[in-house]
Design a binder for these strands. Structure first.
Lengths: 201, 201
DNA sequence: GACGCAACTAAGCAATTGCATAGTTGCTAC
DNA sequence: GTAGCAACTATGCAATTGCTTAGTTGCGTC
């Protein structure tokens, strides 16, 4: 349960970044100690000072490393519609790989207190939201800027719920319900475009 | 910035609970130390041991104390519709009193690692969701269980965004957009109930 | 008014923390 | 092969941590 990785020469830095994500996810930011990270990474704790200088710098680097991987993971969001298969894939992702998600919530919360992390947090969220906005616009939705933010918040909030208070079995239908809500909104607005365009108000 | 409260005899316990919420919100769970809490509360740090025994027990009591206040705060959710005034009130709440909200996210994340906090976290979220479900059902929405979970997740996610990466000025329209989405869904389903009931599939 | 007891403080200790210092190991360029 | 240098380890220390022990203070009760 402790020393997991065995490293070849030169792989220490990467191992330390991965270990940082794992330790934060498993023990929280208050469980993030140089010795804990080093033990998980299978190296000496002073190697952290060597590569990163301080603990704060280690976390910053780990955030950059993790967000780069996170945005790639969200190839999910390339999915065009929020349907059952999207919901299943998202629930499955959270079930099988919760560490990266937990780490994200921890660091975004921390970014409120550490200005040096703000940029990464903002970029991560705005990146997600912009991608989603493009997809929504492509489908003909109106008022896509606030809509994208709201829909992303719903997905984000449901992932948060699944990680903490809810089972995948109840989260999945909630994700699908977002899809039907969007469909209904689309059907309503496209079913009566002429009246609305022509109408007063 | 440090020793804030001056207490009369007998008010130490309550002051310590309030200080715990404040310290967690301002410095994170890793900044939660007995001395920090005591200093904010304006008492000696050993008083924590006297009242609560351990630091873990202090956090547990603070969670119970804070969630009791949180559910009352959410008299907001007594609002029947998600409109502009609801959105404004929610944004204003988060702006003016972020401590309690931040504390909630911190402790819910922590509840993943501390089984003794799980019950409080689940009760808090399920309480919100149940209240919301009743309101949605009253308005004639269908499939309210997953819908309530999704809508709450959206509101929760938007509060999280406002606390971390977004300004109230962009969060508020996103909240309102949830309201219009729900209206549209309602209009669509009530506009053609006969066909749907009578139709196959 | 003094007894009893909860609320509270003062002092300190063992363990853990981040990190500095000093050294060793292994790759790579020539 | 050996010089040079990055990657890495071992040791240790000052500061902070949670919490124990031993005491003091103030309030209600009879």
């Amino acid at each position: 349960m402790a020393a997991t990785r065995t490293n070849e020469y030169g792989k220490g830095r990467e191992a330390l970044l991965a270990a940082t994500v794992q330790v934060v996810a498993e023990r929280g930011l208050h469980g993030l100690t140089l010795r804990a990270v080093a033990e998980v990474a299978g190296v000496n704790n002073t190697l952290i000072s060597h590569h990163f200088g301080t603990k704060d710098a280690l976390l910053h680097e780990a955030v950059a490393w993790a967000t780069a991987r996170a945005i790639r993971l969200s190839d999910l969001s390339a999915a065009e519609t929020i349907d059952g298969s999207f919901a299943g894939a998202l629930v499955e992702l959270v079930t099988s790989e919760p560490h990266l998600q937990i780490f994200q919530y921890e660091f975004v919360l921390e970014s409120r207190r550490r200005p040096d992390l703000r940029a990464e947090a903002v970029a991560l969220y705005e990146g997600y939201i912009e991608g989603l906005e493009l997809a929504l616009a492509r489908h003909g939705h109106a008022d896509t800027k606030p809509l994208a933010r709201a829909v992303f918040a719903a997905l984000d909030g449901l992932v948060f719920q699944q990680l903490t208070v809810a089972e995948g079995i109840v989260v999945q239908p909630a994700i699908e319900r977002i899809g039907t809500l969007l469909e209904a909104s689309l059907a309503g607005s496209t079913a009566r475009p002429l009246q609305e365009i022509g109408g007063a108000s």
